[in-house]
């Protein structure tokens, strides 16, 4: 599946992050370099506590690195305020979390639409697109169900639809199958990889599962604060 290398969607250079809890310093990231190209999928593995979530949050602009530079579509965004990053993130990054993070008061459809509304899009157009996406992830019959009436796998499908509603060029997924049984996990990964390929969306997939990791176009390991190929 080798192709012409696309443009760089996201680039991180020499990212450093240190946490201080009391006297102790935890050097979580000690200089991470990463470039994601259009449409490619990258898996990141690493032990628990190795800093995978921290890295993803920094790439997503939810948290600021202590040092290093971050580029979104060529624009340097490190150093900008979190509010500025939030606005830029809307159409640029879709996120998928281990625990789904659906809004419990909203049904599946409204959960998907919410991401579009936050991005300031027209609700009528969103509604159509959200229905189509939910049908694509196999939940056409469940659009008006509240998350409490959906299984874990179904919740994660809703979350995937939500991540795609704004047609972002990049999806960051943090252990999206961590809470699912093996069979369901397989289906969800199939769906996620399939959809990203279809829509030429770049994907960063944090996972513990070596099988899943192998299915991405590039595999990395986060070890001792550095990213290894």
């Amino acid at each position: 599946m080798s192709k012409e290398p696309g443009r760089v969607v996201l680039a991180a250079e020499d990212i450093v992050k240190t946490y201080r809890s009391g006297e102790r310093r935890i050097d979580v990231l000690r200089g991470v370099d990463l470039a994601i190209r259009e449409g490619e999928s990258v898996s990141i593995r690493g032990e628990s506590g190795s800093g995978k979530t921290t890295l993803l949050n920094i790439l997503a602009g939810l948290e600021r690195a202590d040092a290093g530079r971050l580029f979104w579509q060529g624009e340097q965004v490190s150093g900008r305020s979190l509010n500025h990053l939030a606005v830029r993130r809307r159409g640029f990054i879709g996120m998928v979390f281990q625990a789904y993070y659906l809004v419990p008061e909203l049904n599946a459809l409204d959960n998907v639409i919410l991401a579009g509304r936050i991005a300031g899009k027209n609700t009528r157009l969103l509604r159509e697109r959200a229905r189509a996406l939910l049908a694509r992830v196999g939940l056409a019959e469940r659009v008006d169900h509240l998350p409490s009436r959906l299984s874990g796998g179904e919740c994660q499908r809703v979350a995937i639809a939500r991540a795609l509603i704004n047609e972002p060029p990049l999806i960051l997924a943090d252990e999206p199958t961590g809470n699912l049984d093996e069979r369901t996990a397989e289906d969800v990964i199939d769906l996620l990889l399939g959809l990203c390929r279809e829509t030429r969306t770049a994907l960063v997939l944090v996972t513990h599962n070596a099988e899943h990791a192998r299915r991405t176009s590039r595999q990395c390991r986060l070890h001792l604060g550095r990213l290894e190929a």
Binding site: L62, N83, V87, R90, F97, Y101, I118, R162
Partner: peptide, 16 residues
């Protein structure tokens, strides 16, 4: 709390 984090992840400003 987690939903507040989610809103931020979806691109909400603190004012919203």
């Amino acid at each position: 709390t987690r939903e507040i984090g989610l809103f931020a992840a979806l691109g909400a400003r603190t004012g919203q």
